[in-house]
Design a protein around this nucleic acid. Structure first.
Ligand SMILES: Nc1ncnc2c1ncn2[C@@H]1O[C@H](COP(=O)(O)OP(=O)(O)OP(=O)(O)O)[C@@H](O)[C@H]1O
Length: 802
DNA sequence: CCCACCTACCTTTTT
DNA sequence: GGTAGGTGGG
């Protein structure tokens, strides 16, 4: 047998892989090869008599699972690797729940509610209970319910625990227990589970049916878990159920990379592992293979600022490497321009591809600026996360029909499409149906099955419309049963009337909808084709829905991602690596998020997040922040993040800042003095240390200019759809045509071509052309970092610099 | 009952 | 900068 892969490991790694005699735990810093250990360990197990279907490997994303699988396939062949049980907790246990659905009381085609469905249901629950929709905000309720579920607290247990009820009373939401239990009932009635239910019902299945648990304990002879530091209590318990007897388990993780506490992840799971599994062997890996010495040492110096942590001595034997560059930008737009230029120069200097670069940010909202900067420069990119394809309105509408065809009791899908496209069943009628269903304790679908019996009191014409809808869905149910996903899907899109609605006119909005719908149809065709090629005959609508309901954005491949710059949140970047990483938006109240400033625990998690970000880099790492940025359509000013100061300055190159802002940093710029007359120093008056002013706004100016939309972006163009490629591809929304805009206001005129100006938002640029007179006087300016813009001088805020 | 228009509120982070 | 929800005329 070919054991050469063992030579791609150091002694500690090899020891961890070869130890199979009992529970083991690998705790090690970033880039030390934990994932590699897990991967090779699976290959090792396969070569030592384990059947692939007897190995359960739980990863953090489905993509991590498929990459691991591919790596193992190279070692042991695809014939074996394809039978491995590998995936996220959610996807693996959803699969098991569907197989065991009789015992859970759900039908085989039960729906998975995404968080939008959950919130919408909660809203309706809160309304039914006649509670205030502000104090009982759906998002907040969902967070609390999710918390309870992740700790395996049922509605009954919740209501029976005095401590929880007291806490709720103190939080002024004494009725939360009713919200929780009503929500659970409504999910049941709709034959639906939310994300957290997948874990809860798995736990209960194993807990209440020892014979089922025994079957899976028997099947999964070895269990491996990646990123164990980010498991929550429910996940931890399920793993315990499966492994407490045979104790063949290996988990890997890094407490310094625990960044998902907001969804219940608990660091104690990994810290108490050795107590739970007495005699567990602990392996520590200290050598980082990913990054340069500078990056590793800088990350170490950062994480040392946290109190709660296991100290580790991570080192790198790679090259020393460049210092970490720190950039200051005027504005969010200029930050985008700087990053783009840096990518170009490194790419030229080192001859690497676009896919060697990643731009990592704290919030999805920050992606837009970088997207525009990259697009203007004709650089290929891919954005992960944010609004996914399946969350687009037109796609959700179609999916809602699919969902109904598979599970007509699905309440959220029902409400979504009963009157889309408009068929004369409005709010009044809908309220009557909901009321009747509520009174009888049945689903909406059951209620319209016999309107008279359930006392739905509507006019004759309306009753006919309801009957029409019912017959339509009944036909769809038949379609879903008999045809494959592609055929059934196409038929439903046609017969529901959605096609008519969307193809009526050619407004840009509708055109982009059309393309998205076509993309969805292509995706379904690919799905059927792909499965058939694999010899898998499960190609119904129901199979399709199961597949997409748990696909996250990082999981999906577009095939042509190989040559693109990656844009994603730091959370999604966990476990990945890139040649060059830009960590952007390092400003107080953004990163760290203002939500975290309340407690030290949260602040330390933000710092871990920053640690994760830096340690994604192999060769180069850059940090940047902007002095001003748009948030909620308003300009805000910020200060550099405290985290920059948490890195030992000997690893930082702060000159980058002087180069961009430069020379006359203490000169007051015109717009600075205008709004803040009492401020003695310039807003850009930066020495080498962070300046102390914080959070000032200049709303009045920008409220006015916002309405003017005076900037015309001459380079704007619409993103085109990528051609379909095989397998489940990444589905991307086509943005509807939208005007670029920016705010500014000022007084200057008498401008002429060739002059250099400094614009508040776009930074430095050269005037190329001036045209028009008086109020209509327009200048075309080529900015160093923001591209070519046309500015209406009446409103533009800039100063001439030469 | 439908649609066009307006305002309030919003954002961490994700399966 | 976007969207959900409310208002008012048809
Ligand atoms: N023994 C080794 N020799 C050479 N390269 C290695 C070795 N072990 C790991 N690597 C490489 O180091 C990099 C990091 O490995 P891996 O992703 O497994 O680390 P990790 O500990 O899971 O990191 P993180 O916790 O940051 O996600 C990968 O590129 C991997 O190929």
């Amino acid at each position: 047998m070919d054991n050469r892969y063992l030579e791609e490991l150091n002694d500690e790694q090899r020891a961890a892989i070869e130890y199979c005699g009992g529970p083991s735990l690998v705790i090690a810093g970033a880039g030390s090869g934990k994932t590699r250990v897990l991967t090779y360990k699976i290959a090792y197990l396969l070569e030592h008599g384990y059947e692939p279907w007897s190995i359960l490997a739980l990863t953090f994303t489905n993509k991590a699972a498929s990459e691991m699988k591919a790596r193992i396939a190279r070692q042991v062949g695809e014939e074996q690797s394809k039978y491995l049980w590998m995936g996220t907790f959610h996807s693996i246990f959803l699969r098991i729940l569907r197989m065991e659905h009789e015992l859970t009381g759900f039908s085989p085609n039960f729906t998975i509610y995404d968080s939008a469905d959950s919130k919408s249901l909660l809203k309706s629950v809160v309304k039914d209970l006649q509670l205030d929709e502000k104090t009982y905000a759906p998002g907040n309720m969902l967070g609390r319910i999710s918390n309870a579920k992740n700790r395996l607290i049922s509605p009954e247990a919740y209501a029976a625990t005095a401590d929880y009820l007291r806490a709720d009373t103190r939080a002024r939401i004494p009725a939360f227990r009713y919200v929780y239990s009503r929500y659970a009932e409504r999910c049941r009635l709709a034959d639906a589970m939310d994300f957290d239910d997948i874990l809860v019902y798995t736990y209960r299945l194993f807990d209440e049916h020892p014979e089922v648990l025994a079957k899976y304990v028997e099947r999964f002879r070895y269990v491996l878990v990646d990123e164990y530091q980010d498991t929550n209590f429910a996940q931890h318990k399920i793993v315990w159920q499966l492994t407490r007897q045979n104790r063949r388990i290996c988990v890997v993780g890094d407490d310094a990379q625990s960044i998902y506490s907001f969804r219940g992840a608990n660091i104690d799971n990994i810290l108490s592992f050795s107590d739970l599994y007495g005699g567990a062997r602990l392996f520590k890996l200290e050598r980082n293979y990913r990054s340069t010495q500078v990056i590793v040492e800088a990350a170490n110096s950062l994480i040392a600022k946290n109190e709660a942590q296991i100290r580790k001595d991570v080192y790198s034997d790679n090259e020393r490497g460049d210092l970490i560059g720190v950039f200051e930008a005027y504005s969010d737009v200029e930050e985008g321009g700087m990053v783009v230029r840096k990518i170009e120069s490194i790419r030229k200097a080192e001859g690497c591809g676009y896919s060697d670069f990643a731009i990592l940010y704290r919030t999805n909202a920050q992606s837009r600026i970088f997207e525009e900067a990259l697009r203007k420069n004709g650089m290929p990119y891919r954005i992960y996360g944010g609004l996914s394809f399946y969350q687009r309105k037109e796609i959700k509408d179609i999916i809602a029909y699919f969902r109904l065809s598979v599970n007509p009791n699905d309440e959220e899908a029902f409400k979504r499409v009963i009157n889309y496209p408009a068929r004369g069943i409005g709010n009044t009628t809908m309220a009557k149906i909901a009321d009747a269903a509520n009174r009888a304790g049945v689903s909406l679908w059951t209620a319209i099955g016999d309107p008279l019996a359930y006392g739905i009191d509507v006019a004759k014409g309306t009753a006919a419309k309801i009957a029409g809808f019912r017959m339509l869905i009944e036909d769809f149910i038949e379609l879903a049963r008999t045809k494959d996903a592609k055929e059934a899907g196409e038929e439903m899109v046609k017969r529901s009337g959605i096609i008519n609605d969307i193809y009526q006119d050619r407004t840009p909005d509708n055109l982009s909808r059309q393309e998205n719908v076509e993309e969805l149809m292509n995706g379904m065709a690919d799905f059927c084709e792909g499965r058939r090629e694999e010899g898998n005959g499960n190609v119904s609508i129901s199979d399709y829905l199961s597949e997409v309901s748990l696909l996250s954005d990082v999981d999906t491949d577009k095939g042509d991602d190989e040559h693109k710059v990656t844009l994603m949140t730091i959370h999604s970047a966990k476990g990945l690596e890139f040649g060059t990483v830009f960590v952007v938006g390092l400003e107080e109240n953004l990163f760290p998020s203002q939500m975290a400033s309340g407690s030290m625990r949260e602040m330390e998690e933000e710092r871990r997040l920053f640690y994760v970000a830096i340690t994604r880099a192999e060769k180069h790492c850059f940090l940047s922040y902007a002095r001003s940025r748009y948030r909620y359509g308003k300009m805000e000013f910020g200060t550099p993040s405290r985290f920059i100061g948490d890195i030992d300055p000997c690893y930082l190159d702060r000159q980058a800042k002087a180069r961009t802002l430069g020379r006359d940093a203490d000169v007051e710029l015109p717009w600075a003095s205008r709004e803040r007359t009492s401020t003695p120093r310039s807003s850009f008056g930066a020495g080498s240390e962070p300046v102390e002013w914080r959070g000032e706004r200049s709303e009045r100016f920008f409220e006015r200019s916002q309405k003017m939309h005076e900037e015309v972006d001459v380079n704007r163009r619409q993103e085109k759809l990528v051609p379909p490629s095989p397998a489940i591809r990444k589905l991307r929304p086509v943005p509807a045509g939208k005007a670029a805009q920016a705010g500014s206001a000022g007084v200057d005129d008498g401008l002429s071509a060739g002059q250099h100006i400094e614009h508040e938002r776009f930074g430095r640029g050269t005037v190329e052309k001036v045209e028009g007179r008086g109020d209509n006087c327009k200048a075309t300016v080529r900015f160093e970092n923001a591209g070519v813009k046309q500015l209406l001088l009446k409103f533009a805020r800039f100063k001439v610099v030469d």
